[in-house]
Amino acid sequence: MLTRRTLVGAGLAFAASACAGGFGACGSTAQRKPDARPIDALLIDETIETPPQMAAFIESAARTLPVVGLQLDAAAYAKLIGVLGKSRAIVGISSGATLFCLERMAWDHGFRLTQRTDHCAGDACLEDVAAILSGARALAASPLILVRTYRPSRADGMLHAWVMQKSASLPIRQGRREV
């Protein structure tokens, strides 16, 4: 049986091969509306239980853009920083606890949370993400106050589908520097 982790892992491996051409090459899906702003990566919280449809979804998403498994540790941090450095818009599914951390790390790289939906069920999140990836749902132009009020929790069982986009402000954290 596939566990969620192997599943996300499989998605990632798939993404790596599908996107060997680099980030730019993976920026749009086949079904995308032509005028929709491309999403550069899909981030999936590895700490949540996700429904079986996730496997198929990740696999199909991974054909066109990088899929990144989110863990709250040092290795994932390095990976995340790489993704933020190369992206302008990212979409994801996570618990409030992971979103809280991710949002703050993304701030330092010039990103703002611009859309968020809250669901108890993972498949509803998938629908939201699919709509965003296909361009059926337009990206918000700027951060909305409303998107900020969520519980920074995993214990509440809530899942969030969200979008973060690069803002006009420069990333305040550049790469690590040595003298």
Binding site: L72, D73, A74, S95, T98, F100, C101, R151, P152, A155
Partner: peptide, 27 residues
């Protein structure tokens, strides 16, 4: 993993308690 000298954010993994006095707890 802090006891192994490895930084992480796992302490945020569950988030704070969910509610107090009928209000969402944010921190």
């Amino acid at each position: 993993v802090g006891q192994f000298g490895i930084p992480s954010l796992r302490t945020f993994g569950l988030g704070p308690m969910v509610s107090y006095e009928g209000e969402d707890v944010v921190g």
